[in-house]
Design a protein around this nucleic acid. Structure first.
Lengths: 404, 404
DNA sequence: CGTTAAATCAACATAGTTGAGTTATTCCTT
DNA sequence: AAGGAATAACTCAACTATGTTGATTTAACG
């Protein structure tokens, strides 16, 4: 039931029977995840598969504990339909998010509920410290689980900022303080110790995946996602699935050139990131460390926040326009380690800036708020093994009509 | 043998046996197209399919006339391998390219050789004129074909500039001269008359597809393609296949905002297009009509071409950087209705401009020349039905190792 | 109690896999 | 140089996995 995806050197790219079944199973799970509970007959109509085939597949998924039957729906002529929904305890996932001041591990279930969490604070992350924390947290989070749930853990996802070593200088640390990260591969180090697959992604890409898999709003099929943390990162969702790029670095919004207002260009990270905000605080003699102390509920002086917001919005609007033109995007989704109110203001400001950009020849992308908020990255890390094992690439998914 | 892809409302998204076979057949054809002749045993190794399955599939493709056996290769221990290559006459395709002053139709074979062509010149294209030309050209191009080749025509692809109606003003025509295009759908009008599928794409996206399908150079898996014509357009190739976007408008490079050198931004089309060059000519009192008269072999005054080149390169370098960051691209491919020497200069100039952009945090995209040149668009139009029917999405293709 | 739609059962069809056998070559031994 | 062993490509026949079809059962409404 729901086999691993073969990968690596000897990857099989031809399709055989088991690949066919695997894909059809993922298709069923993906449809139910996106739409909510669906009856076998509805799945048959949506997929074009025969009722018999769908019946076999869904009974299998139910037997595997991944689907549960809901109360039968009566009121229409004919035998009542039995909607099947995702079984929350059908599968569990661990997510490790490495951050600037906080490293977190979460345990989530099949529907994205957080079942447990651990947090470690640090001046700056070190590979050894993170690996140690990961080991302890896995032990602590799995210890209370009964045998049957323990077996349902499907993987560990890691969300890690890329080019961590570039932080050192900006943190006032010795320039080589984080050089360790250059040469360490924590995925490869943790994988042998863990009984499940271990996956790694850029932390912002992971956040994007959380939005895609667990997002509550109705997302378009194509959008660019931006997460404002110490850096700014993102992800690119095309045809409903995340596009990671050949080296896993797609959505590297930090590096995007944006006009600097003086005829040249600079990188987005210089204007639309919390590091930029921290610099603005420092310029006024304030210590920005509080930004990272706890959940982001801070309130800043308007004199500091307004100019930062204006520049960030200008940069992000430029990205929305150029990414929109290139990829025919319908939206840009904004999230970050930000208080809700600030995120709302930022979105409004981007809309205003977009008015000042010539968008002829392309569709204007909507600017939307993310639904996962500050915890998007850890949720996203945990969502990586979920996507890898249980979801089909959405390219082939149809629009699911609402039930009447 | 190689079935049509089902599409439209009742699209079947579940996988059944025939979809499995269809995909494996396309996979075989895609591998041979990319690599050149391959033996059954090599295909078996590359795909991971069993020798028996590959044998059955390839005998079928041979019987269908899509593959031909090459001379057996001896010299190694064991039975000699029989490489199979694409049969040039295995399938034929028609391509209609609508342009500013020229509309063309070509007939190409399975390996991209042009078997026939028709050209119509006009002051500006009209839907009725184009449809009429298409009808006549199809008749003229197919008339000399023997019965068996006639049956091998697989489709008609159309490459059409989007937003044709915006030209009118810049051509000095009545503003509503091309309003017809707003309301006409030449694909829908031609389709019922033709015994094959009729597909339509943006002309620049079609050119991109030609590069992808017939390109002689070794292309990376992810690149952005730019074609400089009257406008500038492009295409986006991700994981080896073209990404068209939800409304078919991906790669709309014309609309990309680039810094205007004065602190604001303007659209790429204003600097990197032949319409910009024509404007520069007009500003010096020269009539730019000659640009379109024949194949692009013109030589321009350095005082006109140098400033245009500089601005175009600056704009394209900005696009290369921002697209590169967003999509983790390995390259930008440049082609256009340009003399070869000018294209070469443009590429060099983009490289220089790229040196002035901060690319930290991303890989520097290579700037490469296209291999199809001025005829890329008509070739590309004809390549559309080829891709649709005979190629698999390359996402799953492995790197084919060279034979030793 | 007839009609309807969901769900299932049993027989069947399709296409991939496995293992044995055939073929055409090179390599090795005499 | 001749003949057999080794090797690798290819094919055949039997088998397996999985999807489809048409008949049947089930549980509701009217």
């Amino acid at each position: 039931m729901v086999r691993e995806e073969t990968d690596g050197a000897g990857a099989k790219i031809g399709t055989d029977h088991s690949a066919m079944r695997a894909r059809n199973e993922r298709l069923v799970l993906s449809l139910i995840r996106r739409h909510g509970a669906l009856a076998k007959s509805e799945i048959a109509r949506l997929t074009g598969l025969s009722a018999q085939t769908v019946s076999v597949i869904m009974r299998g998924l139910e037997a595997a504990g991944l689907l549960t039957r809901q109360a039968p729906v009566r009121g229409k002529v004919g035998q009542p339909t039995v909607p099947m929904s995702l079984a929350p305890e059908g599968a569990l996932f661990l997510g490790l998010k490495v951050g600037r001041r906080r490293t977190e591990m979460v345990l989530i279930d099949f529907v994205g509920q957080v079942r447990g969490a651990r947090v470690m604070r640090h001046d700056f992350p070190s590979p050894d410290g993170v690996i140690d924390f990961a080991r302890r947290s896995v032990a602590e989070l799995t210890a209370p689980l009964p045998e049957d749930l323990l077996k349902r853990i499907q993987g560990l996802g890691i969300g890690l900022p890329f080019q961590l070593w570039d932080w050192a200088a900006s943190l006032g640390l010795a320039a080589d303080a984080m050089d360790d990260w250059r040469h360490r591969d924590i995925r490869a180090e943790l994988a042998p110790e863990m009984p499940w697959p271990v996956l790694l992604e850029n932390d912002a890409s992971a956040a994007c995946n959380a939005e895609l898999v667990f997002g509550k709003g109705s997302l378009p099929k194509d959008f660019v996602y931006a997460f404002l943390g110490f850096f700014v990162g993102g992800g690119l969702v095309l045809s409903g699935s995340m596009f990671a790029g050949h080296s896993g670095n797609a959505g590297a919004l930090a590096s995007t050139p944006v006009p600097d207002g003086q005829g040249g260009s600079r990188q987005l990270v210089e204007v639309a990131s919390l590091s930029a905000l921290e610099r603005a605080l420092a310029a006024r003699g304030q210590n920005g460390a509080f930004l990272w102390e706890s959940a982001p509920d801070w309130e800043l002086d308007e004199e500091i926040v307004a100019p930062w917001l204006a520049e960030a919005a200008k940069g992000l609007a430029h990205v929305a326009a150029s990414a929109g033109a290139l990829c025919d995007l319908q939206a840009m989704v904004i999230d970050g380690w930000l208080p809700d109110r600030l995120r709302t203001r930022l979105i409004a400001a981007i809309e205003v800036e977009l008015d000042h950009i010539d968008l002829s020849g392309m569709a204007r992308p909507r600017i939307m708020a993310g639904t996962a908020g500050p915890q998007a990255r850890s949720l996203g890390a945990a969502s990586l093994p979920l996507s890898a094992k249980f979801l089909v690439e959405f390219a082939s998914l149809p629009d699911v009509p609402d039930r009447d």
